Amino acid sequence: MSGPVVPVTEALLRAMPLPRHEEGEDKDARGRILVIGGSTETPGGALLAGLAALRAGAGKLQIATCRSVAPALAVAVPEARVSGLEETPQGGISAAAAGLLAERCGRVDVVLLGPGMLDGAAVSLLTARLLGSTAGACFVLDAAVLQELAGCRAALDGHAGRVVLTPHAGEMAALLGIGRDAVLADPLAAARRAATELQAVVAMKGGCTFIADPGGRAWSCDRGNVGLATSGSGDTLAGIIAGLLARGAEPTEATLWGVFLHAEAGARLARRQGPIGYLARELLAEIPRILADLLPRRGDAAG
């Protein structure tokens, strides 16, 4: 499938404004998000993703992670309700937690699954069970989940139009069952193929990020810089997109806005601090400032 590739610009985003939230609304009006992620070795993935969702404007945050790291994560993110789950000997979230998590997924607007997760076998089984038993919520699938998603494709059937995938080249290769070099040779084609086959919005991360949706449309964003290629950066992108979904944006809109916000945050940090060496956590504070610059202020004309 081919067609024009539209650059993601400020003008494009202003033509598809995010849902507006007025004074007097409570936090429920900005949506509820559940981040399922982390492990005994990488609990910070869930932390970064959850904070990114709040910085993008989500109203309520829950984080579900391994039991042994949950208390520390709860202290690190006092804004969140943090739940500890049964964990595997390898330090990942056990698939035995699927029933409890499915019930919680039914009470939120968005589920972000994957940041910081380890233990591929458990991830695969947990993902299949959650997707197969949860209806209604939007899903953002990231990181370890994408490595295992090839075996869970049937479970995606009931979620068409409500899923966002955020792969890098290696994860896309695993997802499509092709070589990483093939993905790097034509990342746009890979994004379009995944979007069509999985009926999901896909953000194919790279030096230039390509976004594709199931309808065959495609966009590109080259606003970022080399500093974004750092540990935790992908977790922040997934969290931003999930936060925008929680606020009520459609999957394509949330992904386009999320990719731009993430790239622009990196660009602003690069101008202030230098192009290499800023941290993924430092991206977070930039997000509300960029949103304030792009969104119409009270009294301005919307859009």
Rank of each mutant, 00 (worst) to 15 (best):
L237I: 05
S94Q: 04
A150Q: 09
E253F: 02
K27A: 07
R67E: 14
L269I: 11
A249E: 02
R217T: 13
Q90T: 10
A189C: 08
R129K: 15
L175M: 15
A128Q: 03
H21F: 07
D186R: 12
I240D: 05
A292P: 14
A29G: 07
G303W: 06
A229I: 01
L48E: 01
T134R: 06
S94N: 03
R81T: 14
A280L: 04
C66D: 11
L245F: 03
R223L: 11
A301M: 13
A242N: 08
A72V: 15
R107D: 11
L113M: 14
E22A: 14
T88P: 05
A11F: 06
L100T: 12
A80Y: 01
A11E: 10
L176D: 09
L269D: 06
E148T: 13
V145L: 08
A53S: 13
G99A: 14
A246W: 01
R281D: 06
L85Y: 05
G38T: 05
V5M: 02
S233L: 02
A242S: 14
L228Q: 04
G59P: 05
P288S: 11
L184N: 07
T65A: 10
L54I: 06
R20S: 13
L294P: 07
D157G: 09
L100A: 15
R32G: 09
A185H: 12
P78T: 11
L237P: 01
T209H: 07
A191D: 08
E87L: 03
I36L: 08
L54P: 02
A160M: 04
A169Q: 10
A97N: 10
L101M: 10
G92A: 06
A212C: 14
G258L: 00
I276D: 06
R272V: 08
A194M: 08
G136N: 11
H262S: 11
A155F: 10
L85A: 10
T65E: 13
T166W: 08
V35G: 04
Q199W: 06
F260W: 15
A137L: 02
G120L: 14
D222F: 00
R268P: 12
G239R: 00
D26T: 10
T40N: 15
A285I: 05
A80M: 01
V108Q: 04
V6Q: 12
R55W: 05
